[in-house]
Amino acid sequence: MSDKSPGDLSVSRREFVGTAVAGGAATVLPAYGQVTEPSPELVACTLTINGQREDIQVDPRVTLLDLLRERLHLTGTKKGCDHGQCGACTVLVDGKRINSCLTLAVMHEGSKITTIEGLAEGSNLHPMQAAFIEFDGFQCGYCTPGQICSAVALLDELKAGAPSAVTPNVAEVRAIEVTDDEIRERMSGNICRCGAYPNIVAAVRAVQSRSNA
């Protein structure tokens, strides 16, 4: 990412990180008890993340979310609840949106994963990213990567004609009429505590109607 944080105090931060590393790794344990349980058996796995192949050896307990955030340092995907109840961890797996907190990394052998870091093309934002800025579809920004990934998948779901809980007469298979209520329902797996919902709807609508124009 070439973008620099406006709050980035890079000089001072580097200084202290340097001293921290010098401290090294003194451990408190196993001073009072030897480790008796075996270490976790690592599992080899290959995934493609944002177009890049990743060969990993991983404790099978590691969720896809923790793999992204703690091992691959792709921290754009957020941990809001860690239990599939907020949507902040939404990523695209083979084009479908899922909660990365409720799936294990090893279950995605061969999967193509797109995170928020993989949506823009170089310095060109994805239209959904640009629309979220234009319509102010966020405040704190923590749910935002999940919202945007969700919204990107939503447009594909609409194109495919997939119904939602508010689609009138599900039994009639036909093109979905895109209403605000359709967008609201389809975005309801992403909680925004700042309350940016109306702006999120506006952003999704704008991208949807522009892509159809």
Binding site: I98, L154, A165, A171, G189
Partner: peptide, 21 residues
């Protein structure tokens, strides 16, 4: 959807699209 719309409706009433996926 065409034969058993009640099943589609019930599924869509649950959870979120991410979880249903």
């Amino acid at each position: 959807r065409e034969r058993y719309p009640v099943l589609s409706e019930a599924i869509l009433a649950g959870a979120s699209q991410q979880l249903r996926n």
